[in-house]
């Protein structure tokens, strides 16, 4: 049922998502052990092909791969032949010729994981492409919400900030809607993508209205350097109108949780008190990211048949 590659949440079915989240729940226990390693992917090679710099996502994939005993090789643009003007497709084909079992791709341009997946024999996982999608982030967010709230269906999830440039927002919109949640977005009009309602969300330009009665508020990182003066007048005004504080959060459900994909601009989109408060599940997201990515590496590498893999997983994690 799951395709060869994981390129977008748009492509996944509800059943696919459920299977991935269930598998990730099994993986969480491994991270709690003293010896955090199982042999599932021993002898498998996973390449992190990161054309765009990333610390947390790359590290999360690397730890996930190592906990499953895979050989994880990191490729980053700065240290590579890219600086010698090799084309991305040649770089990708070169990596493929070394016969990896899985390639994890991040690129600053939307669509690159797709065109690489089309050219490679190894399966590809999209670790973020431009403003398109970041499916592994959405899945770990959904795992976090599911475990905090016990369910996803019926919840109201509000995503706040620069939705226009956000791959995290797009992936979460697809994912949460597929799982039966109501998704709202809130941003200044300059940061609302045209036609976003076609994805099934309600768009707001009032933070208060958008978070009223919400179960989950997900704050997006604002790119201060790049966008100030162009898409919003000043950090101060952004923070006043779209930054979240405990006072502003009062209109949400009393047990509302606060999420952020990181890294946080403290005091800009999110106040100190909230980032560190009881409402915040931000570090839980990071922790779940490892388990979620273990699940994905497991499901997309080696590709055992459907029945085998669930049975095998049960054995290994005992």
């Amino acid at each position: 049922m799951i395709g060869r590659d994981l390129l977008s949440m748009e492509d996944l079915s509800r059943e696919d998502i459920e299977k991935i989240l269930d598998t990730a729940a099994h993986m969480q226990e491994i991270g709690q052990r003293a010896v955090k390693k199982v042999p599932s992917l021993r002898g498998r090679t996973i390449v992190n092909l990161f054309f765009e710099s990333s610390t947390r996502t790359r590290m999360s994939f690397e730890i996930a791969g190592k906990r499953l005993s895979a050989d994880v090789i990191n490729f980053s643009a700065s240290s590579s032949s890219l600086s010698k003007s090799e084309s991305i497709m040649d770089t990708a084909r070169t990596v493929d010729a070394m016969d990896p079992d899985l390639v994890v791709v991040r690129h600053k341009v939307a669509g690159v994981p797709k065109i690489i997946a089309d050219a490679l024999s190894a399966p590809v996982i999209n670790a973020g492409d431009g403003a398109h999608e970041h499916p592994t982030q959405a899945l770990l967010d959904m795992l976090t919400v599911k475990q905090a709230k016990g369910r996803i269906a019926g919840l109201t999830v509000t995503i706040v900030g620069d939705v226009l440039h956000s791959r995290v927002a797009r992936s979460n919109i697809y994912g949460f809607i597929k799982m039966g949640a109501e998704v709202r977005i809130a941003a200044p009009p300059t940061m609302l993508p045209p036609g976003i309602e076609a994805l099934g969300v309600k768009a707001y330009t009032s933070l208060r209205q958008a978070i009223e009665g919400a179960d989950v508020v997900m704050m997006l990182r604002i790119q201060m350097e790049r966008l100030q003066g162009a898409l919003f007048p000043s950090v101060r005004e952004y923070s006043e109108t779209f930054g979240l504080s405990r006072t502003k959060l009062r209109v949400a459900k009393p047990d509302c949780i606060v999420m952020h994909p990181g890294p946080i601009n403290r005091g800009v989109e999110l106040s100190h008190e909230l980032a560190d408060g009881g409402e915040s599940v931000i570090l839980e997201q990071v922790r779940n990211g490892v388990a979620l990515r273990m699940a994905l590496l497991y499901l997309f590498t080696g590709r055992p048949s459907k029945d085998e893999e669930v049975a095998a997983l049960g054995e290994e994690t005992k």
């Binding site: 939307a110 431009g130 403003a131 398109h132 999608e133 797009r170 045209p194 036609g195 076609a198 994805l199």
Partner: peptide, 15 residues
């Protein structure tokens, strides 16, 4: 083209 398609693709739109 700027619109639902550019939003889905995550590519900058040209209105």
């Amino acid at each position: 083209n700027e619109g639902p398609v550019s939003t889905r693709l995550g590519l900058p739109g040209n209105p």
